[in-house]
Design a protein around this nucleic acid. Sequence first.
DNA 1: ATGGTGGCTACGCCA
Length: 269
Amino acid sequence: MPFTVATWNINSVRLRMPIVERFLQTYQPDVLCLQEIKVPDELFPTEAFHAIGYEHVTFHGQKGYHGVATVAKHRIDIEEKRNFCDMGDTRHMSTRIEIAGKSILLHNFYVPAGGDEPDPVKNPKFRHKLDFIEEMRCFKALSGDNTASILVGDLNIAPGENDVWSHKQMLKIVSHTPVETEGLEAMRRAGEWEDLMRHHVPADEKLFTWWSYRAADWAASNRGRRLDHVWGSANLAPLLTDIEVVRDARGWDRPSDHVPVIARFNLDA
DNA sequence: ATGGTGGCTACGCCA
C-alpha cells in the first residue's frame, strides 16, 4: 500500500490557503504536516481542508506566531502536544495513524529559528534553540514490527555541507553553525532516527528546501538551505520509495519561503 | 560591511 507524507512551513496558513489547495489537489499526499500556521485554534480554516478531501484536521496553534497542523485523508488521533522548554510556544504535535497493519507515530516540529547572533550567552533565542534540540532527545524512533515513527518539520538547521549553498560562508550563520549541526546530528543518532531525505539524495548533492525572501532573484542566486526534514525509524527506511522537494512551489503566487517535501513509502514492501 | 523581504498586527517583533 502506498503512503505519502508531506511537510511544509507555510508561513501563515490562512494567507496561503490558495497554494495549500493547489499543492494538495496536485500531489494528493495522505498526510500533510504544516508549520508556522500563525493562527489560533478557533480560527483554523478546517472547512477549507474538508472541502478538498482532507477530512481529518488537527492543529496546535496560537495567535501570530508558530503553530503546527497535521491534516489527513485517513483518521489520525492526536497523541501529544509537548510544551518544549516550558515556553508555551506551539511548536510540536504528534499524531498516530493506523494504516496497512501498522501504527505510525508522526511528529510535526517547528524548531526555533534562534535569532541572528550564534552565541547562547549574548542571545537568549539561540540558547533556546540549543535547549530545544536537546529536549528533542525525549523522542526516540524505536519501533517494533507493527509500529513505526516519522519525524518531520522545519528544524531550522541545515546539518550537512551540501544542505547549504556555501558551507564555508555559512559556518557562522545561525542554522549552519557547528554547535547546531553537531547538536542536531547527535540528537538524531541518539534517537536512532534515519535522515530519509539523504537516503534518497546522496550527501554530496546540494539539496535545499528554503530560499530567503530577501534575494532579488531566489532562483538565479540559488542561495538555499535544507531546513526542512523527514526522519524515520529504521524499519521505514527500506520502505521509502521516493523523496520529492517541490522546488516549483517557491515560485507560486504569494509563496512561502519554504517548499513542500514529500516522502513516499510502500508499506507492503 | 550592509541591507535586502515578508507576515503578523497595529509598531515593533519575528523570521
